[in-house]
Amino acid sequence: NNDALSPAIRRLLAEWNLDASAIKGTGVGGRLTREDVEKHLAKA
Rank of each mutant, 00 (worst) to 15 (best):
S6V: 05
K39Y: 10
P7T: 10
V28F: 12
K39P: 01
R31G: 06
S6P: 12
R11F: 13
N1M: 13
A42N: 10
I23F: 04
E35C: 09
N1E: 13
L5R: 04
A8T: 09
D19I: 08
A42T: 08
A22V: 11
K24P: 11
G29E: 06
S6E: 15
R11P: 05
L12F: 06
V28D: 12
I23L: 08
K24M: 12
N1Q: 13
E38T: 07
E15T: 08
I23D: 01
K24A: 11
A42E: 13
R31H: 07
D19A: 07
D36H: 00
P7R: 08
A22H: 09
D3P: 11
I9E: 03
G25R: 06
K24T: 13
T26V: 03
S21M: 10
T26D: 02
G27N: 02
A42R: 11
R31L: 12
T33S: 04
N17T: 04
K24Q: 13
A14N: 09
L12S: 00
L41N: 04
I9P: 00
E38R: 07
H40T: 05
S6M: 05
L12Q: 04
T26G: 03
G25T: 05
T33H: 00
S21Q: 11
I23T: 01
L5P: 06
D3E: 13
K43V: 11
K24N: 10
R31D: 05
A20V: 08
L5F: 08
N2Q: 14
D36Q: 00
E35A: 12
I9V: 12
N1S: 12
P7I: 10
G30K: 03
T33K: 03
A42I: 10
L5K: 02
S21P: 05
L5A: 06
R31P: 02
R10F: 06
N1A: 13
E35G: 08
R10P: 01
E35Y: 08
I23R: 01
A22W: 11
A4N: 14
K43N: 13
V28N: 09
K24F: 10
T26K: 02
K39V: 07
S6G: 09
A8Y: 10
G25F: 03
R34V: 15
L32Y: 02
G27K: 01
N1P: 14
N17A: 08
I9S: 00
I23Y: 01
L18N: 02
K39L: 13
V28T: 12
D3W: 03
I9Q: 02
L18K: 02
K24C: 05
K43Q: 14
